[in-house]
Amino acid sequence: MPEYEPKILAFLCNWCSYAGADLAGVSRFQYPPNVRIVRVMCSGRISPRFVLKSFQEGADGVLIAGCHPGDCHYSKGNYYTRRRLTVLGKLLEHVGVDPRRFKVKWISASEGGKFADVIKEMTENVKGLGPQRSFKRVDDDE
């Protein structure tokens, strides 16, 4: 049986973190192929629902990354992200999701190396934790 390969979903804001992920590519920083990236215009767009849905669908880890505080392309979007997701993090922990599976990071457009490092670290951690046991779908509105 092959080694367990976790699946991590990353939500990145268009202006900083997505650009940072691009920069990791341009700089050819290598990182594990376990992450799938979803682009949003601002991390402020990320609703807690997206995170819950990701875990429901089978994600073993979820990363949210936006501009550094103060750098937001839309001035203050990332402040909302921070507040909202802090609460969500606590909730997830409460329902039994290891906090190492859910990360919120600030990654700028020039931090390609940081992006690669974050993915490396997270993949390693989540690998160590093993697969996330599935959430029961209480309400699936699709």
């Binding site: 992920a21 691009d22 990791a24 590519g25 341009v26 050819r28 990182y31 192929p33 990236i37 690669a116």
Partner: peptide, 16 residues
């Protein structure tokens, strides 16, 4: 985005 966020960052893992 299969270059900046895929082929360039997994250069040694063609299968993955």
């Amino acid at each position: 985005n299969i270059r900046d966020q895929c082929s360039w960052v997994h250069m040694h893992e063609p299968d993955s």
